[in-house]
Design a protein around this nucleic acid. Structure first.
Lengths: 326, 326
DNA sequence: TGGAAATGTGTAAACGTTTACATGATGGGA
DNA sequence: TCCCATCATGTAAACGTTTACACATTTCCA
């Protein structure tokens, strides 16, 4: 079917070993042979078969990136940072979308392993993390969501602290009954719930309400509507991700809730609209690029030295207080 | 290193051929052999090596999806639709992000081909499309951006018509000097510019202004600021993508322009905020899911029958007129 | 009872690479 | 002149599968 090194060897009048050496650029090759092989490659339009290469080498210069939700801008920004680092090290990145579904996540992890990628970057769902086995996969680095035991390298932000700081802005703002909307399936959500609740310590008279839903836009809207209906005296909202926040914010606006106008709405991530709605929204901005870079760096190091000690990078979220339009 | 079919055969006390047959579920196998092999597989935790499989079969059950910009919600929605169709046909999807960079696009196309994927879905940059060769790649289906000659299957929306309808809403609304912001590198942009301009035919006294920039959020903001500075009498804006629109809209809001309040802002795609800013924004909604599904369907058909006639699917954008909240 | 058909299993080749090893040529130093 | 180092190339094995083919056993039917 497609061209092989054999065709090139034939055309160039040498053995396949010579062709391979020219292509790899190592070993002894005469100028004459090199020229002939290069000419043959060009004439035939030969391109090496990575599959055969990977089989022979038992590895490839490709890393896999499993995103929990490709629609989340946080993750797409991370993927760009990962790509930058990978390219710098001569790797390519293949992205898989797990869509917050533990089964899909497992499927793609298996696929990547079976494709013998050199390493994997993953932000696991909680269910998915349970079946993670350090011995089973190629080098694996976790980001955003961390495995409780330090079995893998990981990069996360201090979610508990970030949630606390974000919530504090509302408490300090005098809000009384604060609803927290969190994702349903992630470690991240647990940590943020903890931070959310701890912000209320010593703030008597302030009431936290914890709500959870799958971290999708529509779910955010649905949950927010439900809260408004069941708990009309909620006067402020903390949202745990851009996606949830966007849905919730829409529900508030379309429901003509006073919460928005009173500056009672804050959220994680920095959704594009947070800066230009009126009034603008205070957020915790996650350093997505830094997270992606750090995770990719860790993976590169782990690939180079599989025996190195497990390391854990914790970054800080940046509180962006917006009280009025510029 | 890792387990092979050989280890399983040893454990099960049979030949590798038998193991392979059990795994593939074809050929004659005794119940006894099947049980023993299955037990051995489970005990050892054996997992087939896809690389070897692909090499032997000269193909794999994986398709590649090259996105021009993973940050664009339009593309992430498409990727989800593609995944749905692929899974239904027993394929997995590997996503690559070209970041609107023709070189990256070429790199990932090469990678996917060398990985011997079964087929590729692509929304090419204009530069990238030039070097596309129908003979060179595995089955290739274009979406969103179409190659001028009908060399490949493709799925697009009628961009010219959509742009015309969108622009017409402004002309009918009485706006006089209308700026159109378009992407810099795509066929899509050309078609939309055409539609934008044709909307002005027979609308004397209405002045179109065409502006182009790379289709990123920051570029949209930068360009919008520039327009406001250089052309203060612009009274309405058409934006060619969610990303450009988000940047431009932010620039308008932060610049306290009256354009927004006067309902002079419309755009392609349906950015999350379009429905809840005040006043809400009229948009052309692209049927992203339908596009992704149609493209994946075409690819499946093309893989099954490489000789079938090239087909082209054109979908319509949906004009969503929003004149007041809710 | 004979033999064809159906069933079960193993051997070995093939997929396209890389690379250890063998072999041969050339050149230089003693 | 002889030997060894250096350079250049080729042969063949290996990576982990699938599968054509061969062979052996069992079943079935006339």
């Amino acid at each position: 079917m497609s061209l092989s090194i054999k065709d090139v060897a034939e055309r160039a009048g040498c053995s396949i070993a010579t062709v391979s050496r020219v292509l790899a650029g190592k070993g002894y090759i005469s100028d004459d042979a090199r020229r002939k092989v290069e000419a043959a490659v060009k004439e035939l339009g030969y391109r090496p078969n990575r599959v055969a290469r990977s089989l022979r080498a038992q590895k490839s210069r490709v890393i896999g990136l499993v995103l929990s939700d490709i629609r989340n801008p946080f993750f797409s920004e991370i993927s760009r940072a990962v790509d930058r680092v990978a390219v710098r090290h001569g790797y390519s990145v293949l992205i898989c979308n797990a869509d917050e579904d533990p089964e899909k996540e497992a499927h793609y992890l298996r696929l990547l392993e079976e494709e013998k990628v050199a390493g994997i970057l993953l932000s696991p769902t909680r269910a998915g993390a349970r079946s993670l086995d350090p011995a089973m996969y190629p080098p694996l680095v976790l980001f955003d969501r961390k495995f409780p035991k330090a079995l893998f390298d990981s990069v996360v932000i201090d979610n508990e602290d970030a949630a606390r700081r974000l919530t504090k802005t509302l408490i300090d703002g005098g809000f009384r009954k604060i609803a927290g909307l969190f994702g349903a399936k992630s470690f991240t959500a647990s940590a943020r719930i903890k931070g959310f609740q701890s912000a209320f310590e010593g703030a008597e008279g302030r009431i936290p309400g914890v709500y959870q839903a799958p971290a999708f836009e529509d779910e955010g809207a649905r949950l927010m509507e439900e809260i408004l209906r069941k708990d009309p005296d909620v006067d402020a909202v903390v949202c745990s991700s851009a996606l949830l926040a966007t849905g919730a914010y829409r529900a508030l606006r379309l429901g003509a809730s006073h919460i928005v106008a009173e500056r009672g709405f804050v959220c994680f991530d920095d959704p594009s609209w947070a800066s230009f709605v009126d009034p603008p929204v205070t957020v915790i901005r996650q350093p997505a690029a830094a997270i992606g870079e750090a995770a990719a760096d860790l993976l590169m190091k782990r690939i180079e030295d599989p025996a190195r000690a497990v390391s854990e990078v914790v970054l800080q979220g940046e509180l962006v207080v917006r009280d009025s339009m510029r």
